[in-house]
Amino acid sequence: PPTSTSPHGSPSSPSAGLPPFFMKGSIIQLADGELKRVEDLRTEDFVQSAEVSGELKIDSSTVESIECSRTPNAVIIQFSVGENKAQVCVEVLVEYPFFVFGQGWSSCCPDRTTQLLALSCAKLSVGDVCISLTFKSLK
């Protein structure tokens, strides 16, 4: 069975809302110290930051399926992660943004993401390849 996880440790909690760093205009510090706004981040920023960090490794996580959750306004996304294509399930709010390689921020409900975070998003779809992280030491 696939591993069930959450992007930020605990199960999604709709009442708590999304993390503040996804709000448009949030200042993000890259591994080399450069500051960028969240909406200006590019694929290369993540890739280069992971290379600089030494401890983290970028994985390609392909969206295998997107299903409704019992939790209101949430979905369960199944990813195929890394070279081993490990199956990982994540329960997130529909507006939760993922960064898709070569495309940028994407969510299951882009309109809601834009409404809540002012962050422009594309529609996250099956087959999209998202950026995810693992610790190199886990390998």
Binding site: L30, F79, T134
Partner: peptide, 25 residues
């Protein structure tokens, strides 16, 4: 314009989910 003393700065890895598969061996 950004006011440096009041604007939080977040690390880049906060934005990316850690999707660590369970090791099968």
């Amino acid at each position: 314009n950004v006011e440096p003393r009041s604007v939080p700065v977040f690390p880049w890895h906060s934005l990316v989910p850690f999707l660590a598969p369970t090791q099968s061996d």
